[in-house]
């Protein structure tokens, strides 16, 4: 009785869970899940629509399913969500355009860092080879010591 009353009270204040669509055939459903893992849930914090238990995420995954069933390519599906939420909708930045910098910049920084480190190792050897400048006073001292 208490459980029934609690469920009635709680049902008033929370969004009711909603069933997602039936899965497609195995090959296309695998694609739905793979694409879903790369799309951000609009009502969650940093979770993909394939991993989120939120009803809205299920609705977004249903949209992916609908687009896959309609024969859309992965890029066309990503574009649908980017048109609404911008690049924010993607869990991974695209490997093209300005977003390519996000992938290239760390490698570039690594190369620059390696160059700087290697260069700093070379310097002591180079300086060691440099002969000391002529100093008349020191020459005189050496001569006096040899006497």
């Amino acid at each position: 009785m208490i459980a029934l009353m609690l469920s009635l009270v709680l049902a008033q204040g929370y969004a009711p869970p909603r069933q997602g669509q039936d899965p497609l055939d195995a090959a296309r459903e695998e694609r739905v899940q793979r694409v879903g893992k790369l799309l951000r849930c609009a009502v969650c914090q940093g979770v993909s629509i394939a991993d989120s238990p939120a009803s809205m995420a299920r609705a977004q995954l249903d949209k992916v399913r609908e687009l896959v069933a309609a024969g859309k390519t992965d890029d066309e599906i990503f574009d649908y969500f980017v048109d609404r939420y911008g690049e924010w909708a993607l869990m991974e930045p695209r490997k093209s355009g300005v977003a390519l910098a996000v992938w290239v910049a760390p490698l570039l920084l690594l190369v620059i860092g390696l160059f700087v480190v290697l260069n700093s190792f070379k310097k002591p050897t180079a300086t060691a080879q440099i002969e000391a400048p002529a100093d008349d006073f020191l020459d005189q001292v050496r001569k006096d010591l040899e006497k």
Binding site: A42, A59, Q60, D62, K63
Partner: peptide, 14 residues
């Protein structure tokens, strides 16, 4: 909007 299709189409985030 029983399946939230309109919400998804409009980019609702809450």
């Amino acid at each position: 909007d029983p399946k939230s299709t309109v919400a998804v189409d409009y980019g609702v985030s809450g």
